[in-house]
Amino acid sequence: MEITVKLNGRSVSALIEPDLLLIDFLRAQGCLSVKRGCETANCGLCTVLMDDVPVLSCSVLAARAHGHSITTLEGLQTEAADFVGFIADQGAEQCGFCNPGFVMNTIALLRENPDPTDDEIRAYLAGNLCRCSGYEGQLRGIRNYLNSRKG
């Protein structure tokens, strides 16, 4: 079947199998930031924005994305660059494999709630697993970023 998706602002059409998952479609389209860490919708590594809402691309059929807008980290390089330096300053990116999902969901959080408390940050990002950092450095990085925005 054929689908047309607005991928990172660009209209993309492709012939796909009905059971192709969005994550695999996106990686085939060259969006290598989208990672898979599990098969059970638990890790959050594959987070992308579908019509600006963060979803697990491992659990969405590519067919379902037809007619919708999909944003991956490839499409948010400028918006992300502002923020990720603060994570780098903490060394909290560590292995980096969970980073794209974490960055995407943090962007979604901050669009929804520009001035979150620490508890709101923890709650919103609870579905983004990270095995390296222990999360505390990610929290410090987000906090420093928010403080920098306040001037």
Partner: peptide, 12 residues
């Protein structure tokens, strides 16, 4: 519902 996996899961 708030402890069901994560926001991205609950969005689906």
């Amino acid at each position: 519902v708030r402890d069901i996996v994560g926001v991205q899961f609950r969005n689906l």
